[in-house]
């Protein structure tokens, strides 16, 4: 199709206009965020707005670290996202292996149930979860958050991992058995390395799910020193005086791992999004 269109239109003006518009509309908010984070106070509220700066001022970053508990929030986010990812990936990898190697009565029903689970909206789950966590004493607990995000990670991870495990030929494992490996060893040395690309993709998606979430953290965390980055940023925004360079500095820092992960897992995006990894 591309070659056909090439031939048809020598001057591809529509392509040029389209690309320029797309890059401008999609890219500008990122640029504005980064620019605001280093704008000196004199340019911040100028009219017309200053579209670049010659005197970058890192005061926003400095105030973020000196006047807020940013590092504590970052640490909380990191602990919760890492914990949830580890738990979810281990549990889903075991289940995906089980589902593809040992089909048993009811495993198909289980797969369908998993499909239903991955379409559940967070807002529907968070209401009763709040009630249950309150009774179980899991409000304001990293463990509670890890459990919540891990169980949101399992359905789409399982859905995404099954094809990877199914694609590994049984003969590979049988060869390992012949060489004297047992079931556990063959799974560890033969099956899981083969599924590595899938495991990496679901790890990144689960990490992002926990890293970016606002709703669960808002409802299940009330203590300041346990807050995650998204709710901390919202609270900073709601403070009486809005310090935009500081807010945008925080936004830049929260985005950094996300954009790195994005470059890293680009090629899995279709599969991951299709599975509802990020809604």
């Amino acid at each position: 199709m591309t070659t056909a269109l090439h031939r048809l239109s020598r001057v591809r003006w529509y392509l040029v206009i389209g690309v320029v518009l797309l890059v401008a509309i999609n890219g500008f908010p990122f640029y504005w965020m980064a620019l605001t984070s280093v704008k000196p106070g004199t340019e911040l509220f100028s009219y017309p707005p200053a579209f670049f700066t010659t005197a970058p001022d890192f005061g926003g970053f400095q105030r973020l670290f000196e006047t807020t508990n940013f590092l504590t929030y970052a640490k909380n986010s990191l602990i919760i996202a890492t914990g949830a990812t580890a738990l979810s990936v281990v549990v889903s990898a075991l289940a995906a292996y089980g589902l593809t190697r040992f089909p048993f009565p009811g495993s198909r029903a289980f797969s369908t149930a998993i499909l239903y689970a991955y379409t559940f909206a967070p807002i529907v789950i968070v209401v009763p979860l709040y009630g249950m966590f309150r009774e179980a004493g899991l409000i304001n607990s990293h463990l509670g958050m890890i459990l919540a995000y891990a169980s949101f990670g399992v359905p789409f991870s399982l859905w995404l991992l099954q094809p990877f495990f199914r694609a590994i030929p049984a003969e590979l494992e049988e060869a390992a058995f012949v060489d004297g490996a047992n079931r556990v060893k063959s799974a560890w040395y033969v099956v899981f390395p083969q599924a590595a690309p899938g495991l990496i993709a679901v790890s990144v998606f689960t990490f992002l799910l926990a890293w970016e979430d606002y709703l669960f953290a808002r409802v299940l965390i009330t203590q300041d020193d346990l807050k995650t980055l998204p709710i901390a940023l919202h609270d900073l925004y709601n403070a009486s005086l809005q310090d935009w360079p500081l807010l945008m500095a925080a936004a830049v820092l929260i985005n950094l791992p996300v954009l790195i992960a994005f470059l890293f897992v680009q090629k899995y995006l279709v599969a991951g999004w299709g599975a509802g990894a990020i809604k």
Partner: peptide, 26 residues
Amino acid sequence: GWFWGALLLSPAFLLVAGVIAAPIAY
């Protein structure tokens, strides 16, 4: 075989049942 299948699935089942299915019932 089904025993191993059920065993491997149980952690996922517990997590999804505990944090998604049970809350729906609640």
